[in-house]
Nucleic acid binder design. Sequence first.
DNA 1: TTGTATGCGTTATCAA
DNA 2: TTGATAACGCATACAA
Lengths: 333, 333
Amino acid sequence: MRPTIKDVAREASVSVATVSRIVNGLPGYSEATRRKVAEVIQELGYKPNAVARNLVNRKTNTIGVLLPQLSSSFSAKLLHGIEKVAQEHQYSVIICNTDSNGKRTMDYLNLLREKQVEGILFASEHLNEDYYEAIAAMDIPVLAVDAHSDYETIPFIKVNDEEAAYAAANYLIQKGHKSIGMISGTKDDPISGAPRVKGFLKALAEHDILPEPNLIEYGDFGFKSGYEAMGRLLKKNPYLTAVFAASDEMALGIFSFCYEKGISIPADLSVIGYDDTQVAEMSTPPLTTIHQPIEKMGVDAAESLIKLIKNEPVESKYVPFSLMERDSVINLK
Amino acid sequence: MRPTIKDVAREASVSVATVSRIVNGLPGYSEATRRKVAEVIQELGYKPNAVARNLVNRKTNTIGVLLPQLSSSFSAKLLHGIEKVAQEHQYSVIICNTDSNGKRTMDYLNLLREKQVEGILFASEHLNEDYYEAIAAMDIPVLAVDAHSDYETIPFIKVNDEEAAYAAANYLIQKGHKSIGMISGTKDDPISGAPRVKGFLKALAEHDILPEPNLIEYGDFGFKSGYEAMGRLLKKNPYLTAVFAASDEMALGIFSFCYEKGISIPADLSVIGYDDTQVAEMSTPPLTTIHQPIEKMGVDAAESLIKLIKNEPVESKYVPFSLMERDSVINLK
DNA sequence: TTGTATGCGTTATCAA
DNA sequence: TTGATAACGCATACAA
């Protein structure tokens, strides 16, 4: 059995109240008893029980993070930023992989509430009405990160996907490309799907490039799907000079496809990605891509959540993206 | 204020004991009161407080995971496996980024103990004597994953680095390579550093290839360091036909270096990596590498830890690696 | 400077 | 089938 505060009190011949004061650095005891108690604590190897403490303080110093998956380097970076800030503020973080599964998400939401976490980060997934209602009912600060929220009470932190996609397409156009294809992520993904397509189309339209429907193929953000989508895209549009991929992984799928077919990047085809995950700088050639400040988003999100916990106001915000120029796009002019 | 079991009891005109029984599905009440209580619970939106529950049950259903960093896809995959199993067993997981920092590790160890986690996974870091003593003192199951432990009470789960490195070098030799360099990770890393060098050297020795000291350069497992080490390695050994990198990232650093210098892989130089992280299959050419079953290690680790928690015996074990043949090594014969 | 007593929200024992 | 009530380990108001 682990020693409790009572054991310490008995052993040191003082009351538990005194021990508690000493442990918590509160005033109200002589130096002599302090020394004595400290000695006993040391001797017994006493450590306060945070569960009991949390119960009386009604504070757990922990937050929960809901993620649709945690095997990607995107999740890892986001978590890294979150954990860092949490640690600085003495918060623990519980990770919850929802697998994009509605039931699991709900279950986790309930679990986190029961565990009395003080706040929840809802990452990379669409915050639908069901979730919103569950969240609203549990009366606990929630913040969406790398995700959009339509609700006043749930602020979000993300990059503006439409603008970023617009910037990517525009970049290609500025480099003289006119025949540009796109490999989008999941078609009906309201976060990273539709908005990026919209931005892409907007850039084309503004430069009077006819947006043929064949110019867009859909994948699932993953490497393999990029490879496959590229096959379909090129079949329908053999004269493409550039492609915008909605994720770096899909962009590398394009690389892989082209490598096999003997299509040289960027000489024969220019490619621009999205995310700027680790793989982007490591590819050959290095991938020009939209840089998302992933870790910083994690940092911002955690900081904002902690503000929310302290009842300080927090506003939704778009974090700035940037275009990371590397070597996968050629200038046609 | 959130409703407590007392509120439910009062509102339903029963005792808290009855509510507790109903909530926990224990026997001891009529169907009528069950219905009534369920109704009130629904109405009030009552959820049991896990903190209070944990206090009386002396069980938190929580484990902690200590990692030296969590921004890589390696950590992400490991976590993925861990979380999956934890979730299946109704355990929550708290993540702790130690940043390879001794003090932080100690602090986290203490925190986890205070939070009464039921077990700890110690990942990817050398379990030194200081840690061991702290762990031994806190009397809680600990298991090392992707790390070695010399202690009977702390089992480990990892791949046999020496054997895997031996297999990598041997593969190169079988393919007819005689002039083989290595880019190792951190020199004094007792887990992924020295053992891999040893395995490499052993393969060379067994085939009567003189292990010149210049044949090994050191990096830090990261992309950039691989790039740089490759520069040094090639300067000292211009006639290398193959290189073994102790991590995929460093292997890609080699790719990058060769791409710039116009050295073609695998035509001019063969490269074999280590880890088989996501980037390996996404590179051009796809990287031949030592496959570590990272996610499975996470799964095994979590399952073993839970066994440990249940006081079931657990043995240390090496998980099998495999050699993933892709296109970065050429057959010289 | 110190101790007593109460409560935090549960579970579980015991009696009814 | 039910209800008091004593823990669980701690913090704190209040009394001394």
